[in-house]
Amino acid sequence: MKALVSVKRVIDYNVKVRVKSDGTGVETANVKMSMNPFDEIAVEEALRLKEAGVVTEVVVVSCGVAACQETLRTALAIGADRAILVETDVELQPLAVAKLLKAVCQKEGPQIVILGKQAIDDDSNQTGQMLAALLGWPQATFASKVVIADGKAQVTREVDGGLETVSIKLPAIVTTDLRLNEPRYVTLPNIMKAKKKPLENLKPDALGVDVAPRLATLKVLEPPKRKAGVKVPDAKALVEKLRNEAKVI
């Protein structure tokens, strides 16, 4: 069976993000970009399923500008078999990505789609759920363990208060949480092999998807600067401040 994994190109997690001076967004020029860390976990999980003999092919897909190819090459270097870029310069919102992924799913026919639970740039946490709804497939989000057997996926989910295990019928959508696995290091031989793996380029129009944004961003602001803390002389003063100033007790 085939696994489809979506990967997003985001600002590297080590970069200190700066808001553009005109307030229209964050600065991405001359900023290091890399694969969304949750998506790396998704690629790793698909590869482990392949190595376990459950999955036969791992296809990675990314939606966005031409430079997303770099992110796809990274996924191929981790070990994915082939890649699809849905190329557009339009700003993509989760619903648009979910629609594109739905079209790719219909074309590719995967039995399992693995996505990061959210991307670290906009933290939307929507695409996987929207994709499941659009396809009418079952979903298991925030996975910390995935076991596949007899046409079903048994997924352990991280929920408030503990772990929940659900069983869903394939084909299905799984989104990854941090503790699902620890992605492997990309090795030089695999980086070189990735150069030769197939990378298909599609356009939203060819998939029949309208990706125009449904939401408008009005303004992007820096978070307010934190004020310096104060030292309190004793517990009594602390309680007093918590009660009367912070009003939390």
Binding site: S34, V186, L188
Partner: peptide
Amino acid sequence: TPEHEAMRDS
């Protein structure tokens, strides 16, 4: 090349 940079990242 991008492959050099990919190795640096790793």
